[in-house]
């Protein structure tokens, strides 16, 4: 079902890097895909070398790798939220359109490709206004419509039961795990089809982490999720696919169970086994 081919590529510094990247067959719907994506900051050495990854719709894909491996850089480029001094080469295909193009409205892209960061970042506003703020900035809604969106997105993020009686309380009074789920709900309110999560649970305690993971798995049926994580167990628990990044290259991309049971590349097995990183 998945066509596999082994790639050995030589990169600039003439070192041969062994890679193994699956390519989704035409049977699998692609939510987003990169072609030769290269990223550099301020004209320095590439933070990411030619990366070709395709993400399957309604699946969770984990991006793993040591710090500085380029996985967060890659994730941030997908909804064009990278900083101003970042140079991106190559293509990002979203619904067949290359969004790495100056003519693309990056604000619109970010509404369709939602993002959640490592540290919960609710606005210093009420729980209700956190969800409605981005909506009302763009269009007019009636109070009933807003109420409905608030309820449905909080339910999707499994937070409704805990906060339904205190929607006017400050979002900052919630616990870290609740804040993170509120942030997820806030992104969902914009009706995106892809959710990018940048280490969404690494600032949370184990119980909140569990809740966030459960939320992710529940969201899978409606959204494509790409998650950067440092936590191997988390990647193994929640994701369908895993991509292993190392020093700006994707070393291995495969089904999660394969990456964690019998990786094809030695570097991957070393990392997954905890020998470095």
């Amino acid at each position: 079902m998945v066509s596999r081919n082994k790639i050995v590529e030589s990169i600039k510094n003439e070192v041969e890097i062994e890679k193994y990247v699956i390519n989704l067959s035409s049977k699998h719907q692609r939510a987003i895909e990169t072609k030769d994506l290269t990223i550099s900051y301020n004209g320095k050495k590439n933070a990411l070398n030619k990366t070709n990854l395709a993400f399957e719709t309604n699946k969770i894909t984990s991006l793993i790798g040591a710090s500085g491996s380029g996985k967060s850089t890659f994730l941030r480029s997908l909804n064009l939220i990278h900083g101003e001094n970042t140079l991106i080469g190559g293509q990002i295909l979203y619904h067949g359109v290359n969004i790495n193009d100056p003519s693309i409205d990056k604000f619109e892209v970010r509404r369709r490709i939602g993002m959640v960061f490592q540290r919960p970042n609710p606005f210093a506003k009420s729980i209700y206004n956190n969800i409605t703020f981005a909506l009302t900035q763009r269009a007019k809604y009636t109070k009933n419509q807003l109420d409905e969106i608030v309820e449905s997105s909080l339910k999707q993020a499994a937070l409704w039961d805990q906060v339904k009686d205190e929607l006017n309380k400050s979002a900052l009074s919630l616990s870290g795990g609740q804040q993170q789920r509120l942030v997820i709900a806030r992104a969902l309110a914009l009706k995106p089809d892809i959710l990018l999560l940048d280490e969404p649970a690494s600032a949370l305690d184990p119980k909140s982490t569990m809740q966030v993971e459960e939320t992710m798995v529940n969201l899978k049926k409606d959204y494509t999720i790409i998650v950067v994580t440092h936590n191997m167990q988390q990647a193994a628990r929640v994701s369908d696919y895993t991509a292993f990044f190392h020093m700006g290259n994707v070393i291995e991309y495969d089904l999660t169970r394969k990456i964690f049971t019998r990786p094809k590349v030695k570097l991957t097995s070393d990392y997954v086994a905890g020998n470095f990183g």
Partner: peptide, 18 residues
């Protein structure tokens, strides 16, 4: 004001000025 708040705005497709 922490940068988290600005990132949050950007991630929701809200312009810097808004």
């Amino acid at each position: 004001i922490p940068n988290l708040q600005r990132e949050a705005g950007a991630a929701l497709g809200i312009s810097r000025f808004e």
